[in-house]
């Protein structure tokens, strides 16, 4: 499985999304599920760039690979060399938070909520000095 390397910069988000979209289309994922997968990867990649790299004064890369597994899942693997960070550790809004009017909203957690919601399975692991985020969607519903 070969990875595509992007600079850890917000400008890389658009080409990163294009890659995921292209592979999702090729794998036969529906438009709406492909979009949700693309959104999930975008949200986590944004967190890595802003909080993993930039906030810590670091520069680096995002390595992305996409494959269809024997279990008929489309799996996106996103790796980086930034500080250890498990997106699942961020608490997303609960049902009550989501009913609060916008003017009283706390801004946090929306991205991670959308990311977790957009895939069938999300995994995080620290592998050596790298973070590995795995997004999986089933190809047959």
């Amino acid at each position: 499985m070969s990875a595509t390397r992007f600079p850890a910069d917000l400008a890389a988000l658009a080409p990163l999304r294009d890659l995921v979209k292209q592979r999702a289309d090729a794998a036969g994922l529906s438009t709406s599920r492909g979009y949700r997968l693309m959104l999930a990867v975008d949200e986590v990649a944004t967190n890595i760039v802003l909080h993993g790299y930039q906030e810590n004064g670091l520069e680096g890369h995002l390595d992305v690979s996409v494959e269809v597994t024997e279990d008929n899942e489309l799996v996106v693997c996103l790796e980086d060399d930034a500080v250890a960070f498990d997106p699942r550790s961020l608490e997303g809004p609960d049902a009550e938070d989501l009913s609060i009017p916008l003017e009283e909203r706390d801004e946090g957690g929306l991205g991670i909520m959308l990311a977790m919601d957009g895939v069938d399975r999300f995994d995080y692991e620290r592998v050596g000095e790298r973070n590995r985020n795995t997004f999986a969607v089933r190809l047959k519903e």
Binding site: E103, R105, L114
Partner: peptide, 16 residues
């Protein structure tokens, strides 16, 4: 064609 949570945060900002 695409809106991430960063766009939602601007909507919160707009309302405020």
């Amino acid at each position: 064609t695409f809106m991430a949570s960063a766009g939602l945060r601007v909507l919160i900002f707009a309302k405020q």
